[in-house]
């Protein structure tokens, strides 16, 4: 049975159970957007762009007291091993919705009444955990666009492979593993804005996975801050 972990509890790619994949972040990669970010989360490559605030279409969706947030999560046809149909799938519609709900608590929506904020998350290459990478990238793009935010949103998943709780599952571990728990938090406010679970956990394992995912999110948050500092303050950061 034991095929995802070796005898020393190392994973297929050599990581320890509580180790993240290598992460790269860059802010401000698309000049035509108001804000943008690019993230590499292991082999995931994600581009996020923010347009707005701008006027709302169709007009009946306008809210007089606040902005509305429209998110689109999309996987490019070349993001997977076999060509993916570019039409939005059931899964993409779901992820668009949960990314929007994960970001909304972070944004001060009432500062932009009668407007719409558009967030586009494009998966260029996927390798498991792309929704967490998407939330993270989208949050950076929002900060880059200069939209008032209470906090950044940082995402990271935990899961269970070969009966052991592990951090940041990749595609193989997600498919062959026992459970996957994607999570996004507002690190300074200590609030959870995204929590899904696919698979089985015992109560004890669930708590352990939750703690591990939070630890991962906090590491991701540090990298988000560094990415923003790099763009805006360069080497001047004290």
């Amino acid at each position: 049975m034991s095929k995802l972990l070796n005898s020393k509890n190392r994973r297929l790619d050599g990581r320890k159970l509580d180790e993240l994949r290598p992460i790269k972040m860059k802010v401000g990669v698309i000049d035509n957007a108001n804000g943008s970010a690019y993230i590499e989360f292991g082999r995931n490559k994600v581009m996020a762009a923010v347009y707005g605030p701008k006027d709302v279409h169709p007009k009946h969706m306008m809210k007089t007291e606040s902005a509305i947030l429209k998110c689109r999560y999309h996987m490019t046809p070349f993001s997977t091993g076999r060509r993916k149909n570019p039409a939005p799938s059931r899964r993409e519609t779901e992820i668009s919705k949960i990314i929007s709900e994960a970001l909304e608590p972070a944004i001060v929506m009432t500062d932009y009444p009668r407007t719409a904020i558009h967030v586009y998350v494009e998966i260029l290459q996927s390798d498991g955990g792309s929704r967490c990478a998407g939330v993270t990238a989208a949050s950076l793009a929002l900060a880059d666009a200069g939209i008032n935010m209470r906090d950044l949103t940082s995402g990271c998943a935990a899961g269970k492979i070969d009966g052991k709780v592990a951090l940041d599952l990749d595609e193989v571990e997600d498919m062959e593993g026992d459970a996957d728990l994607p999570m996004a938090i507002l690190p300074n406010l200590e609030k959870v804005t995204l929590l899904q679970l696919d698979g089985d956990f015992s109560h004890k394992e669930f708590i352990e996975a939750l703690k591990l995912a939070k630890k991962g999110c906090l590491k991701v948050y540090e990298m988000q801050r560094n990415a923003l500092n790099d763009k805006y303050f360069g080497n001047e950061k004290a």
Partner: peptide
């Protein structure tokens, strides 16, 4: 807490963040 990327400035009783980006 700051709501923007920018430079925070505290002078006497005023506290503000001068944003570096925004609409």
């Amino acid at each position: 807490y700051s709501t923007r990327v920018g430079m925070a400035e505290v002078i006497n009783d005023s506290l503000r963040v001068i944003p570096l980006t925004g609409p």
